[in-house]
Amino acid sequence: MSVKALDFNCPDLQLILFELFLSVYLVTVLGNLLIILAVISDSHLHTPMYFFLSNLSFTDICFISTTVPKMIVDILTQNRVISYDGCLTQMSFYVLFGCMDYMLLTVMGYDRFVAICYPLHYPTIMNTCSSVYLLLVSFLFSVLDSQTHNMIALQITCFKDVEIANFFCEPSQIFNHTCSDPFTNTILMYLFIFLFAFFPISWNLYSYYKIISSILKVPSSGGRHKAFSTCWSHLSVVCLFYGTGIGVYLGSAVFQSPGKGMVASLMYTVVTPMLNPFIYSLQNRDMHSALKRLYRITV
């Protein structure tokens, strides 16, 4: 059994895609590694917020590594075929690290919620044990999501020599090739959205509602600005990641447009992990200072 990814025969387009994917991958890996090194090396960043941020950076490296290296090899070898087992493996890790991103962003939202709404109780609530516990729960939930996708994909009986309209084995594209009725596939898409995205999104909406309400009660404009600055980076990443991620599923389920789905999945899989280090380093003073200190140490 084999799966054939979307083909591009134009040599000029292949060269552009090769250079683009390679550049984005290198920037993403290096950027996220810098975030991890900055957090580890700077004692000022040994807090729950940056503990989760460093794990988010590690997850982003793993997330983009499940797809982009295979894309680059495919372009170089002119081979768009991936085995059935390879496709399921890629999809499994793709969902695992994608869901881990979702969960970490949710946990980071909870961290900001406690820090701003209950500042006096923050050291007690967000201690080392609770941070590790939240990380473990996020990982287990992500494994559950990944295995659920795999179990459904393994039920596909006519998944043979098909061509998917994407660069990699994206779940919504795979489910479009099931032998079941298209209406059933649409129900599955909405079910995944509800189970694995509704809770994180709902929690982030609630937490930021409470956060903004608390910030607006701060009497000084300087205090409000400082509080907003600690949340703005996280809110930017949440909107970018959730928007493109849900767009992949909704676009595939409702509009059945391969082109739009491919663009959305590329944004979700490739662009978002690349932008995260820039968003957190440029809009966060503590991280900006830590990166400067890291640069002085290395030089």
Rank of each mutant, 00 (worst) to 15 (best):
M1F: 12
V3R: 03
K4R: 09
D7N: 10
L17R: 07
V24P: 02
L26D: 03
A38G: 03
V39K: 04
I40M: 05
L45R: 03
F52E: 11
S57E: 03
K70C: 10
V73C: 13
I75G: 12
Q78R: 11
S83F: 10
C87F: 00
L88N: 13
F93Y: 11
F97N: 03
L105E: 01
M108D: 02
Y110N: 03
D111H: 12
A115S: 06
C117R: 12
P119K: 06
Y122V: 13
P123I: 01
S131K: 12
S131R: 07
L136G: 01
S138W: 04
S142N: 02
S142V: 01
L144D: 12
L144A: 13
S146T: 05
S146Q: 14
V162N: 11
A165D: 06
F167I: 07
I174H: 02
I174P: 11
N176R: 14
C179W: 08
P182W: 11
I187H: 15
L188P: 02
M189E: 09
Y190R: 15
L191Q: 15
I193Y: 11
F194R: 07
F198W: 05
F199V: 05
I201D: 00
Y209R: 04
K210E: 10
I211C: 01
A227W: 01
H234R: 03
V237G: 07
V238G: 00
V238A: 08
Y242F: 12
I246L: 14
V248S: 02
L250Y: 04
L250S: 05
S252T: 12
G261M: 00
A264D: 00
S265W: 00
L266G: 00
M267Q: 12
Y268Q: 08
Y268C: 04
V271W: 02
P273D: 00
L275F: 14
L275H: 13
F278W: 07
F278P: 04
F278N: 05
I279G: 08
R285E: 02
H288T: 11
S289P: 04
L294T: 04
T298F: 05
